[in-house]
């Protein structure tokens, strides 16, 4: 043992004091802030503040007209015992499970087809996107017409193949599949995103795969899908969130003005229930609590998707 104490490691140099920004840097920063201040103010007033305020409202009894009365966790306790919350959550979950895979697969299939379309791709890209411009309320009405169990076009077509189509709009078992199918009306936006990703896949990868004897399916599975997995993940996440927030099409088809008295529990999605509580029955405190539950659910599901994506999604340039 040496008597001499080990020489201390060279002490790190003391951190130099952060240099004051130069006047010109401060001017630039301030100018930047001025430029983005409309957005900052808009975000704080119209997004951040309402979010925080809704958290407060969720702890109150509030009917819009009179001042909110603090009730603690009463709204959350009521949610725990409200059978309609369970029903609405279950409906929403079922719809999401049906709709998201269907939507992503169809979007991908159309994008793959478009990618082969050559010169006419531009025309088809526009054609696929145009239905996205249809207002969601109109899509809800379209659902009732196309999916009418007796005289709707969908069942007419099924009839040509000898299939007796179901009562899409009145049979509880078929309402959610019907809504999932009509959601494909606006699949064009995702097709465009996936098509852009497909166009970014380097051609030499396909060439190399061909040289190795890979057929179409093999190339798609081992080259295309990994290379566009980032875009696929984005489409999946965004669409999952949208599915959890399903409202307009279902509301206009089953709860809106055209159906002022008829409704079907199978179409009672979570946001529809939230809307009815908040805006029809003026239980704004309870509706705020419902909104926060939905936020937590969506956050959890998105977090799970993010974790799973680490194993499945490849970003170009990423080292593994």
């Amino acid at each position: 043992m040496t008597s001499a104490a080990a020489a201390p490691a060279a002490a790190p140099a003391p951190p130099s004091r952060r240099r004051r920004a130069s006047p010109s840097a401060r001017r630039e920063r301030n100018a930047g802030l001025r430029f983005i201040s409309p957005w900052i103010v808009g975000f704080l007033v119209f997004t951040a503040w309402p979010i925080l305020y809704s958290a407060y409202l969720s702890l109150t009894d509030y009917d819009v007209l009179t001042d909110p009365t603090f009730v603690g966790t009463e709204n959350y306790e009521r949610m725990a015992t409200d059978p309609k919350v369970r029903l609405a959550l279950w409906n929403t979950l079922q719809y999401t499970i049906i709709q998201v895979p269907l939507y992503v697969v169809v979007a991908l299939a159309l994008a793959l087809l478009l990618n082969q379309a050559g010169r006419s791709a531009g025309f088809f890209r526009t054609a696929f996107f145009i239905p996205k411009m249809t207002p969601p309320v109109a899509v809800g009405v379209l659902l009732l017409l196309l999916f009418n169990g007796q005289y709707g076009l969908v069942n007419e077509v099924l009839g040509v193949f000898g299939i007796d189509g179901p009562s899409w709009t009145t049979d509880a078992a078929w309402i959610k599949p019907g809504l999932a199918l009509i959601s494909l009306w606006s699949v064009g936006s995702s097709v465009i995103i996936l098509l852009a990703a497909l166009r970014d896949v380097p051609a030499e990868l396909y060439d190399a795969a061909r040289v190795d004897g890979a057929g179409w399916w093999r190339r798609t599975r081992t080259v295309t899908l990994p290379m566009i997995s980032g875009a696929l993940f984005f489409v999946t996440v965004v669409n999952t969130i949208a599915a959890f927030q399903m409202f307009t099409e279902a509301y206009s088809a089953y709860f809106g003005a055209g159906n002022s008295t008829y409704s079907n529990d199978a179409a009672l999605f979570y946001v529809i229930y939230l809307f009815r509580e908040g805006f029809e029955q003026l239980h704004m405190g309870y509706a705020s609590a419902l909104a926060w539950l939905l936020f937590v659910v969506i956050m959890l599901v998105t977090a799970v998707q993010l974790v799973v994506s680490r194993r499945l999604v490849y970003y170009e340039g990423e080292q593994r």
């Binding site: 009732l144 009418n148 169990g149 007796q150 005289y151 009562s167 709009t169 009145t170 049979d171 008829y262």
Partner: peptide, 8 residues
């Protein structure tokens, strides 16, 4: 359901 579908 049958009546509603038809009347719709």
């Amino acid at each position: 359901p049958a009546v509603k579908t038809f009347r719709d």
